[in-house]
Design a protein around this nucleic acid. Structure first.
Lengths: 369, 369
DNA sequence: TTGTACGCGTTATCAA
DNA sequence: TTGATAACGCGTACAA
């Protein structure tokens, strides 16, 4: 029916290594088959313009040489890369990893790749990473803000990115003044669930171990704690609120954490419930409490935010407020891709941004009665 | 000294949103400044060919409009993307996250980005992900093989990628027959350290909880266990070797894990030491042991492989063999980038591949005496 | 049915 | 000192 150029198929590979089949391009196929590039292109895309004969010839050849269109060329041509940039503070962190899992899941399903940058909680790294990616490498960002950025309250890199027409979806650590979609956990409500559980289980003196207020989620969880107390007519006591300066976790920091928690217990002998805004604070509290002779959950009950490995597998296992990180990631990716693909249609939609709240769940385990 | 085109600087933004400063290109700058594209390009790169005057003019304009060269265009032109593709089985996993941290660290330092694909332990997803990225999106791979791939022993996607001239660096779960650089932990030696520690602390009946043999690291750690016993003249007993079928961690799987471990203890009452090839097996063993009335480390000592959050923060904290994931990632990235940048010079170096062994450390904590 | 020409954004080479 | 042109790989409108 058809056959290849005589000197083609059994020609020796051009490269030194026998097996070397370098990536092949349209141009090369065209040359070998002695047709034009566009003919090859059309043939491969099953265009009706091309005769059955050449179509088959081209396709067979392409298959043999395992032709795949070059992504970069496509990106340049289409002015879109089909990849999403993720910027997160750190990746060695259960919550963030689950979010990435969720993002990757729907991104892949919808034909996108995922490129990851770590800010390491540093403002500068966040800015640099975003700049690197914003120069054409990606179509949009999904990010959670670094603590240092939150502290400095300098958000110009976000607004600039958005002004350049590149959409951002923020999750978890978000800031209201930026016009973009957001996916958050209802931290206040989650905290109220947690504290409510402690009250329901008979706790009278509930302490909270939280972060300084500039970490938005810490602040909100503290607020939830206070609201829950109020709802149950419990008078909050300043001495029961421990706000940790959450520097990067050095071993040194860990020591300090223990000391502060120990002090909390010692100056408030009557504590019978702890609400910790993250797992680490929770397990550390338990460790300290045990050292002081308290039994969990008999004389002290603990609820933690963030449902991670520690909660599930440490002993006693922790009652936690689960944030559903994966669901957050999935939602964030869907929001971003929806916006990316909407932009195609109506060039300029009315810019209306969504803030999606992912419900938390209370998962009861051994650290509460 | 110089000034911009009259209708330039105070021209109204083209876009509807007042602040909108869309990404600007060389072409646009050229048009606005009424010079040629190549002049702009040269001026921005401080070419001596360009007069001081126009150079400043162009640079000022570019700065004002925050010009950045488009990465995609550069990639197309230079035939390299300056980005590294990572394929790992899962990201919600302390070891893999630390490796990524290491990769990202040196990649960024050396001017590379990092794009992440998850195989989810599936052969198909591994293949698809690699194909997506191999079409021009990246310059090389760093990967750890999915369990399913290991099981099926189908490695054609690796060899094909390599034959196309795209280098791969494998880490942790590697396979010898593939010609590429590798970074591994000395699993045998690490296991020997662990078991040695148990022996030194007085254990006489040491059991191992490991994976089925097709997981290379599990097999090697089992081998280390056996060698350690031999060295200490302890006769290995088949009943002390528990090989877990390591399906994806469903809660169901967890139940089964507990049951199997419970059976291990019940049929071997004299066990006084456990070597677990990962943290989860270790904490689960401890949980079961406690339920059976064993005290840690008094009547049962435990050492685990992989130094993660669980080891550090669960109670009792675990004595572990640390794999130094971050160092592995750093080394892998350096190997890959070295090879990428070496290729530039001597087009075809003699293909000699390196296997770097990262030493493990024994970190003693509360689960051993 | 096939091929030519153009454009995506850059840089490099060579001509003016 | 500046500019025109080609090339990277692709897809497509249009011409043949």
């Amino acid at each position: 029916m058809f056959n290849f150029n005589k000197n083609q198929l059994n020609k020796k590979p051009q490269n030194h290594t026998p097996l070397m089949k370098r990536k092949i391009t349209l141009k090369q196929i065209a040359k070998e088959l002695d047709v034009s590039i566009s003919t090859v292109s059309k043939a491969l895309r099953n265009s009706v313009e091309i005769s059955e004969d050449t179509r088959q010839k081209v396709q067979a050849f392409a298959k043999l040489y395992n032709y795949r269109p070059n992504n970069i060329a496509l990106s340049l041509k289409n002015r879109k890369t089909k990849t999403i940039g993720i910027i997160i503070p750190e990746i060695v962190h259960y919550f963030f990893s689950t979010v990435i899992t969720g993002i990757e899941l729907v991104a892949n399903k919808r034909g996108y790749n995922v490129i990851v940058g770590l800010s390491n909680e540093s403002f500068d790294k966040e800015v640099i990473n975003m700049q690197m990616l914003a120069n054409g490498s990606i179509d949009g960002f999904i990010l959670s803000i670094a603590k240092e950025t939150l502290l400095q309250q300098d958000y110009h890199h976000f607004t600039e990115t958005i002004n350049q027409g590149m959409p951002i979806v923020m999750f978890d650590r978000v800031v209201n003044e930026i016009p973009c979609d957001k996916v958050v956990v209802d931290d206040v409500k989650g905290a109220k669930q947690a504290v409510g559980k402690l009250v329901a289980s008979g706790c009278k003196n509930i302490a909270i171990i939280t972060t300084k207020d500039y970490v938005s989620v810490g602040k909100l969880r503290t607020q939830g704690y206070l609201e829950a107390l109020e709802e149950h007519k419990i008078h909050p006591k300043a001495s029961l609120i421990l706000k940790i300066e959450d520097k990067l976790l050095s071993d040194d920091h860990l020591d300090k954490l223990e000391k502060e928690i120990e002090l909390l217990f010692k100056s408030n002998k009557s504590i019978d419930g702890i609400f910790a805004v993250n797992e680490l604070y929770a397990v550390t509290a338990i460790k300290v409490a045990r050292k002081l002779g308290l039994e969990i959950p008999k004389s002290l009950q603990v609820v933690s935010f963030t449902d991670g490995v520690l909660s599930k597998h440490s002993t006693p296992s922790l009652t936690t407020v689960s944030q559903h990180g994966q669901r957050i990631g999935e939602k964030a990716a869907d929001l971003l891709i929806d916006r990316l693909e909407m932009d195609e249609g109506d060039e300029e939609e009315e810019e209306v941004y969504e803030t999606v709240v992912i419900e938390t769940d209370l998962i009861e385990r051994e650290s509460t009665k």
